[in-house]
């Protein structure tokens, strides 16, 4: 009995995302479990980079998946399932950020502001005592990167994270965010420059990650 179930699940795992969600529409809950397994890490990472808080990101990821299940009948095969799911998640995180209307809860590594030329201020590490040749562990690296991502304006951050963290194509990002392809490209370029300006001083100091 268990062997049959295992075989059936293994067979379902070979199906594409779109085939699985069609199965969910017909009431097959095992297929939705497979979809959750496939997307939970990607979705969680996207939302974590967007909100900067692990618990909040997990809550949003769960909410997005629950919405996907409840509204599975609204999914149409004209779009990729991943795009549809990212659209749900993007709307949720956008609403969350708008409702909070307060400074993001990222680790504050940088002072906001601009210099006389209107450029972003130089990176100001919190730990001033750290020597340039010292090593960062994964946790510290993650905090620094998250801090830098959190400094990117929200409207650029969405496209940037979907591109650089979730490796979505420009077309998929345009579909998920509802933006034009040119706008997506422009926003990603701006966000990359923003991120580069924040990280560049660390690279210049020769900090080895």
């Amino acid at each position: 009995m268990h062997t049959d179930s295992f075989k059936e699940k293994s067979k379902l795992k070979t199906l594409s995302d779109e085939e699985l969600i069609l199965q969910v529409q017909q009431g097959n809950n095992v297929c939705f479990d497979i979809l959750v397994d496939r997307f939970k890490v990607r979705l969680f990472n996207y939302l974590f980079r967007m909100v900067g808080d692990r618990d909040e990101a997990e809550e949003l990821a769960q909410e997005a998946l629950v919405k996907a299940y409840i509204h599975a009948d609204k999914y149409k095969t004209i779009a990729k399932f991943s795009t549809w799911l990212y659209t749900i998640a993007t709307n949720l995180v956008r609403n969350r950020i708008r409702s909070k209307r307060r400074a993001p809860q990222f680790l504050s590594l940088w002072n906001r502001g601009h210099d006389a030329d209107g450029e972003e201020k130089q990176i100001d590490l919190v730990d001033h005592g750290r020597q340039p040749d010292s090593q960062f562990n994964d946790k510290e690296l993650g905090e620094i990167i998250n801090g830098a991502i959190g400094e990117i304006p929200e409207k650029y951050r969405t496209s940037f994270v979907l591109r650089e963290i979730n490796q979505l194509s420009y077309e998929e990002i345009a579909a998920a965010t509802g933006l034009k392809l040119g706008t997506v490209r422009s926003r990603i370029n701006r966000a990359r420059n923003h991120f580069r300006r924040l990280i560049e001083p660390l690279l210049e100091k020769g900090v080895d990650f």
Binding site: V36, F44, N45, R54, L141, G142, I145, F195, L203
Partner: peptide, 20 residues
């Protein structure tokens, strides 16, 4: 290039065990 390489090198965050 280096800043984006750094971003791509960053380990993926994992959700909690009881996520499902």
């Amino acid at each position: 290039t280096k800043s984006l390489e750094l971003l791509h090198r960053m380990p993926q965050a994992q959700p909690s065990d009881n996520f499902n």
